[in-house]
Amino acid sequence: MSGDDTGAEALLEIRDLSVVFDGFRALDGVNLTLARGELRFLIGPNGAGKTTLIDVITGLTRPAGGSVRFGGKDLVGRKEHEIVRLGVGRTFQTSVVFEELTVVENLDLAASFRRPLWALAGRRRGVSEAVRAALATTGLEELAERPARVLSHGQRQWLEIGMLIAQRPSLLLLDEPVAGMSQDERARTGELLTEIAEDHTVIVVEHDMDFLRRYASQVTVLHEGRVLTEGSVDDVSADPRVQEVYLGRAREEATDAVG
């Protein structure tokens, strides 16, 4: 349960990670350990470093110091696509699907990256097992042959999650999957998340406290680039420091507005 628990089943181990942007420490000595099969929520106020942490794991941002070990391999310094090939997949806050391609083509590309490049010169015939499964999980079967540009915002997020599943990664990183979604879409995404977490290791970055209370079990709280606390949802939300971070921020903003 503790962040420093280095069990044999640890899939992701982050040690003393720091990221500096123009002198600003976005991450400052972060430690995080994730066991295989775990569903972990990452929360914190704006600017706490949640997305930066995801960016470092996936190779988008270079850290100033520290290490990221995934399944025994060091991820720091590897290129984005190499990290994906090791089994780490992610989504983005603003979903990016390929609008000119159909839903099934989007999923098929996501599922095909392990094939050698020359094997891609053939036409896609039918729908592979991984794609079929992703279509079923996300409930996008009806829209399979439609171009992705006609999808609603929620459907795009699901397609993106579907593409992630189709990659068959061993670690999934979801960056604010319910941002901008309606209540119904949130509930649907929550169910989807629970389903995925059954057989995947998942990190979810989330802002939405309601969503968190309903679907989270283990939570890590980031604040100003550091891990503030870790634990179950109840423990974390009862923690006075967490309340201070969220409420204190609110108070500051209120005084700013007045001043």
């Binding site: 290129k79 696509h81 994906v84 390929f98 891609l120």
Partner: peptide
């Protein structure tokens, strides 16, 4: 072909393609 679909994907979102591996 799949390569052709991938090429269109690269045209429309090169950075996103990296995260497809």
């Amino acid at each position: 072909s799949r390569f052709g679909r991938l090429l269109v994907a690269v045209r429309d979102g090169e950075d996103r393609v990296r995260f497809l591996g």
